[in-house]
Simulated assay, not measured.
Amino acid sequence: MKETISKRAEKIKFDKAGYYAIGLIALALLGFWPTYFSKFFDGTANFNFYFHFHFAMASLWIMLLIVQPILIKKKKLSIHRKIGKLSFIILPLFIVSVILLKHYRIDGIITEGLGASLWLQLKDLVIISIMFTIAMLNRHNMQIHARAMIATGVVFVEPTLGRFITLTLLPNPDFMLGLGITVAILYALIISLIIIERKQTNGRWVFPLLLGIFMIFHYLIFFQVSFHLWDSIATWFVKLPIT
């Protein structure tokens, strides 16, 4: 019986992940509707290049997460590999888009607790970079590769769902409350994946690692942790003439 379960666990694939990734589009529409998409309908859209650039790069990454598993499911491995090479271009550009947009929105203003305010964006960049690196180092191990790429998609859940909860569902916008609710849902999602994965023999460490990194950053965010060196780096970042 144990041998049967083991064999069955080893055969678990993530070729349907692309269909689930479509949900990220719905979350993006819900989360960014009040502050971005709706503006194009009421004539108040006055966004500059940084907003559009970030939207474009995030959209391309989500499209990769949708298309690539579907290509695997349809056994289009050659096309999957060719499109996969685009990730080495899209991800760096996505990271640059986040940095530029954050720098622009700070607008050169150095405030108390500036360092602590940067953990939110740094979290996403660190996690997506770590998970993408794991995915690429294990691109010949589908079990690890697939999990790590799914983890890069999980990164998009918090900023999209968080905006939807904060700006639409809460009676009064409350960033920390909205973030707290979002984090609870996010943890429930990751823990569910960990439970589902409990009988896997290859790669089941990816989702616990993802949860651990999230927990470290969320501790820094909720308790507004900072220190002199990080505040100095934050000040240096704000003073850079990049936007």
Score class of each variant (00 low, 15 high):
residue 2 K to Q: 14
residue 3 E to M: 13
residue 9 A to S: 14
residue 25 I to V: 14
residue 31 G to Q: 02
residue 34 P to C: 13
residue 35 T to I: 15
residue 40 F to K: 06
residue 41 F to H: 02
residue 50 Y to M: 15
residue 52 H to W: 07
residue 52 H to R: 06
residue 54 H to Y: 14
residue 58 A to F: 04
residue 61 W to D: 04
residue 61 W to C: 02
residue 62 I to S: 01
residue 70 I to S: 00
residue 71 L to N: 07
residue 78 S to M: 11
residue 79 I to H: 02
residue 81 R to I: 15
residue 82 K to G: 09
residue 83 I to L: 15
residue 91 L to G: 06
residue 93 L to K: 12
residue 100 L to D: 00
residue 100 L to K: 09
residue 108 G to K: 10
residue 109 I to C: 09
residue 111 T to K: 09
residue 116 A to I: 07
residue 118 L to E: 04
residue 122 L to H: 11
residue 123 K to F: 07
residue 132 F to I: 14
residue 137 L to Q: 04
residue 140 H to P: 03
residue 141 N to I: 10
residue 143 Q to D: 04
residue 146 A to R: 08
residue 149 M to V: 09
residue 152 T to Q: 06
residue 153 G to N: 01
residue 162 G to W: 02
residue 166 T to H: 00
residue 174 D to L: 12
residue 176 M to I: 12
residue 182 T to L: 08
residue 182 T to G: 07
residue 186 L to P: 01
residue 186 L to K: 05
residue 191 I to L: 11
residue 194 I to C: 06
residue 196 I to C: 14
residue 197 E to T: 12
residue 199 K to F: 14
residue 200 Q to R: 13
residue 200 Q to K: 10
residue 204 R to D: 04
residue 206 V to H: 00
residue 206 V to M: 04
residue 210 L to V: 06
residue 212 G to A: 15
residue 215 M to C: 10
residue 216 I to C: 12
residue 232 S to H: 07
residue 233 I to D: 02
